[in-house]
């Protein structure tokens, strides 16, 4: 493994111990830009979605105030649609990054037994049954959950566009997404869209907690990695092979 001198960091820990830490470059700009666009758009989408489900209903006369704040249902719906398009565009952007950058391809290796063993280990750790787990660039549980969140987002996109484009059932949009309406009817899409939105919200809450916790407990620069794209690790991570190129070198951004 070839790591430049400048990428070594020496820091002193509280206990007075010295450790050699290495900085690994994992997340390409595609993933990071996607991540933060997704954060903004999911917050907007979830909040506006809740309001669309139960719109603010003004009593007599007060709707004028509501419109002065530009909070009419029409405006909020447009906000929801714009955020939806932003999320979709950034998701496509992320897919492009997935294709060109190996570090953006940290998916679960479900066909290897080792992956499942490691998953059990990490889950034991998070169930507080084990003090620590092996170091990973991205641990198996995280890998599984990010595939899950992408799945949930895809469900939201498909159901969302299906409902959105049905405003013109003869248009191109409904040609592409209208087939989703057929099996169980359009009301079903609303229900699915709504339940999955809550799943994403709960996922985001757990995700933020786990990241903050990992940053405090393991001091691997978990939070900053989504800004700088790098993680600082004391040991060679277990899944380092996932960011090696064909010649076996660790890929640098």
């Amino acid at each position: 493994m070839t790591v430049k001198e400048s990428q070594f960091i020496e820091i002193s820990m509280d206990s007075g111990k010295e450790m050699h830490l290495t900085r690994y470059y994992i997340f390409s700009p595609f993933l990071r830009i996607f991540h933060w666009l997704m954060v903004v758009s999911i917050i907007v989408l979830f909040a506006s979605g809740i309001v669309i489900m139960t719109p603010m209903s003004m009593g007599e006369g007060q709707y004028v105030v509501l419109n002065n704040w530009h909070l009419s249902v029409d405006w909020i719906r447009n906000l929801h649609f714009v955020a939806g398009f932003v999320l979709t565009a950034s998701f496509l952007f992320r897919i492009y990054g997935y294709i060109i950058n190996k570090g953006d391809r940290l998916l679960p290796n479900i066909f290897r037994m080792k992956f499942w063993d490691d998953l059990v280990e990490v889950m034991m750790h998070y169930c507080l049954l084990k003090y620590s787990h092996k170091q990973f660039l991205r641990n198996p549980m995280a890998r599984m959950s990010y595939v899950a969140i992408y799945g949930l987002i895809v469900v939201e996109m498909l159901t969302g566009f299906a409902m959105y484009f049905q405003v013109n059932p003869n248009g191109v949009g409904s040609f592409l997404f209208g087939w989703l309406v057929i099996p169980y009817g359009e009301m079903f899409l609303h229900v699915v869209h709504h339940i999955v939105a809550w799943c994403i919200f709960l996922f985001a809450a757990i995700h933020v907690y786990m990241v903050v916790r990992a940053d405090f407990m393991e001091r691997e620069g978990e939070i900053s990695s989504m800004i700088s794209g790098t993680k600082v690790l004391a040991h060679l991570p277990d899944d380092i092979n996932d960011i090696r190129d064909k010649r076996g070198r660790i890929i640098k951004g």
Partner: peptide, 18 residues
């Protein structure tokens, strides 16, 4: 009325009558 956020919250309220 939907776009403006004017809703009947109950079948007996002023919004429903309006």
């Amino acid at each position: 009325f939907f776009d403006a956020g004017m809703f009947a919250n109950d079948f007996n309220d002023a919004g429903a009558r309006a």
